[in-house]
């Protein structure tokens, strides 16, 4: 029972971090109709910035805040200088250009920080476990990540559903041409949305850095999962991104334990141990293909 609870929390933690990436990606995709492969690079840059600030100041809070601000500015500069030119181009050109940006970002980080991965430690007070129930310990830092993820999700919900900016964003996602025709200052809106997405990436990078490792190429694996998330949830939909992210997180984490366990009843442990993790990964993509096949607009379509 504790195993399920613990794995559920693990899945939620992973899912919420995926959500931070997917939220920005889905807005850019939904509003600007732009496939941005360099989205994962912003996550990487956020993590490196956090590592840099943490190393020089020793303050975790400062590191997160600085990384958020820095990456947001960088994202907006990127939008103004390069990405803006790509909105009117086809998806293929966008893929190639943002793939080029991804290579440039990776190599720049390698030149600046070396090719060795940086390992960070979470703040000392959070490095141990918390006893959630008698005998049930859970890492304090992962709880913090869950808390931050939930707070951001709530904030985003309020922002999108209750504010004027949110209204413009929703208008852009559901009908871009109409929003344009209604005189929305699209240029500024796009730049702002992009900067906001970059900040969310940086938050994910800064939070996950101490848990994983800060390294060149860290954005690529998670980028593909973020794409899976937004396809499952529905392109352009924040609600969909949240649902998709939690689904992917929980399926992946539970699949990695439950599949080997259930396989073990019919197969030798070594075989079951090998097969389980891969089956869990396959499951995510089966889910994505099924959604695309039966509900191409995703589970929570943004366009009416």
């Amino acid at each position: 029972m504790i195993l399920f609870l613990e794995q559920g929390l693990n899945g939620l933690q992973f899912g919420l971090m995926l959500f931070l990436l997917a939220a920005g990606l889905t807005l850019v995709f939904g509003i600007m109709d732009m496939i941005n492969l360099a989205h994962g690079s912003l996550y990487m840059i956020g993590a490196y910035l956090a590592a840099l600030i943490l190393g020089s100041t020793g303050s975790f809070l400062l590191a997160v805040a600085g990384s958020l601000a820095g990456t947001a500015v960088l994202g907006m500069l990127l939008e103004i200088s390069v990405l803006r030119r790509l909105y009117s181009r086809d998806h293929l050109s966008q893929v190639l250009a943002t793939f080029a940006l991804l290579l440039i970002a990776n190599e720049s980080m390698r030149i600046l920080f070396g090719s060795q991965a940086l390992t960070l430690n979470p703040p000392a007070v959070l490095s141990g476990p918390v006893e959630l129930a008698p005998g049930f310990f859970y890492p304090a830092y992962r709880l913090l990540i869950i808390g931050v993820g939930l707070a951001v999700a709530l904030l985003l919900y309020l922002l999108v559903s209750r504010t004027r900016i949110g209204m413009l964003v929703r208008a852009g996602a559901s009908n871009r041409e109409m929003a344009l025709a209604m005189g929305v200052n699209v240029r500024a809106l796009f730049t702002a949305v992009f900067g906001f997405g970059a900040a969310l990436c940086a938050l994910a990078g800064a939070m996950l850095g101490p848990l994983l490792a800060v390294e060149v190429g860290m954005g690529e694996g998670i980028l593909i999962l973020a794409f899976v998330v937004i396809v499952i949830g529905g392109i352009g939909s924040i609600r969909g991104a949240l649902a998709g992210a939690v689904i992917v997180g929980v399926v992946d984490t539970l699949g990695r334990t439950l599949l080997p366990m259930s396989l073990r009843t019919v197969l030798p442990p070594t075989v079951a141990g090998n097969l389980g993790p891969s089956l869990a990964s396959i499951l995510i993509y089966v889910l994505m293909a099924a959604v695309l096949f039966w509900r191409p607009q995703g589970l929570f379509p943004a366009r009416g």
Binding site: L3, E6, Q7, Q13, F14, L212, T253, R256, P269, G273
Partner: peptide, 22 residues
């Protein structure tokens, strides 16, 4: 009592640690 195989280069061991605890 158990052999757990992970992905090469894996960095997050939350799922495996839960399994060990159990």
């Amino acid at each position: 009592i158990d052999e757990i195989y992970t992905r090469l280069g894996q960095l997050d061991y939350a799922a495996e640690l839960a399994q060990v605890r159990a």
